[in-house]
Design a binder for these strands. Structure first.
Lengths: 239, 239
DNA sequence: GTCATAATACTTGTATACAAGTATACTTGA
DNA sequence: TCAAGTATACTTGTATACAAGTATTATGAC
């Protein structure tokens, strides 16, 4: 796969991925980071040439991105949708919706195993910080939330997560890369937030959970703003 | 498209649909109705032969069904998943989750247009009942809920709906076909429920909304049970 | 210059071909 | 009879070919 631009999606996350998955992951990152401007038109042939693959994997990738609301498939070409403040807020809404649902299930369960698993993931996050690896950190961060959601064994709620995950992953990845450069001490707070979240689950403390959840959201929210400003820096002036 | 079985999905809903969409819709109906037993293995070549199309649309259809949790794509072949009581309950959960979210948004808005639209749809449902057309009725029933969800202009909540819709549509379709034959007077109650729902939106009455919502769910829930029993009748004895 | 029409260069959806990998069945040796 | 290895018939993922449709551009009549 050789194109005009460098690849921004971590290659190590694409071990056994098909060409279609690779293209989808890469395009997603470029769209969310603003490297591909909203309103752009993507055509299958053009992308196939750019990524040096055939149309088959490209079609697959476009279907995926359309299901994530990042592009809209039209008669001729796919248009890149804008990731507005409203969009970010909507993702926030959905996360709040499913994570509170999940928590209501958690308080009715024994979560000893879950807490142990989360603690492990948190330790990994700390290591990632220590070695200044934003990609590893993001991976563990996403995994943290996925572990919680998966734990209640609700396949439809998990489906909603699966749809949301790629976008969220890209957002977190992009913002963490910036933070590792610019706001390194933010991570103390992020770690403490996650500790609070674990504690909330362990003690089945609703108030604590909602509090840490909101703070966690604010983290991403804040990061997104960083992302926008940073993006303006490297892409071009604002309109 | 010629196969061994009759097609159960309404052809008139497939006007401009691609071959992939047709196959997906038909397979979905057969899986949910139990015509294709859970645990069966589907292969692309076999399906391509059965539907007299190439593998391309089949691949597309399988991806769609996998995203709806109706099949699981494995290394070799796709296995048909079971639609258990638990699954039905989960769909119920998600509907409750998004429709209550939607209602919270509705109480902050002016819904005159929406109420008018819903009334129109309800009139159509009555006509469908009068002319004993379960397919038309199901279409309007699904449209009724889609109209409500769409009205708040929340693209991510709508995405969740879009994922849920095909399964729900199939469930409603199958159960309504049975009811039109066996329990014709159920429809009085269903219509009254929808009237209550409209009233709840119009008066922004949370309690009324929750009440009618639950009754509406119970309708589908009940229908599903009908579906299972009826299915046992025509497919084969229970294990 | 302007409008209508025709030619061209796109587009998508589907069919087919091929390569690489995996399970099944079958042989072969003891 | 059974184990090990090989052949065969599957499987998926990708590339390519083709048909039908749509936008754009060029052409020509007025």
């Amino acid at each position: 796969m050789a194109g005009t631009n460098e690849y921004v999606y971590p290659e190590k996350w694409l071990n056994k991925a098909s060409a279609g998955d690779r293209v989808a992951s890469e395009l997603r990152m470029r769209i969310i980071s603003g490297q591909i401007e909203s309103g752009s038109k993507l055509s299958e042939n053009q992308l196939a040439a750019e990524f040096s693959v055939s149309r088959s994997p490209i079609r697959e990738a476009l279907k995926v991105l359309a299901s994530e609301n990042l592009i809209r498939l039209e008669r001729m070409g796919a248009v890149v949708l804008e990731l507005t403040e409203k969009e970010i807020q909507e993702i926030y809404d959905v996360r709040l919706l499913i994570e509170t649902f999940v928590f209501e299930r958690l308080v009715k369960k024994d979560n000893q195993e879950l807490v142990k698993e989360l603690s492990k993931t948190l330790e990994m996050m700390k290591i990632a910080i220590k070695y200044k690896d934003p990609d590893d950190f993001s991976f563990q961060d996403v995994l943290f939330h996925e572990t919680i959601i998966r734990s209640i064994g609700h396949s439809h709620i998990f489906m909603i997560w699966k749809n949301l995950k790629p976008t969220l992953e890209s957002l977190i990845l992009l913002s963490m890369r910036i933070r590792f450069k610019e706001k390194y001490d933010d991570f103390d707070r992020i770690i403490r937030n996650h500790e609070l979240y674990i504690e909330a689950i362990d003690k089945k403390d609703r108030d604590l959970m909602v509090k840490s959840l909101h703070q966690n959201f604010d983290d991403v929210q804040g990061s997104v703003e960083d992302l926008w400003t940073s993006q303006q820096t490297f892409s071009k002036g604002v309109e």
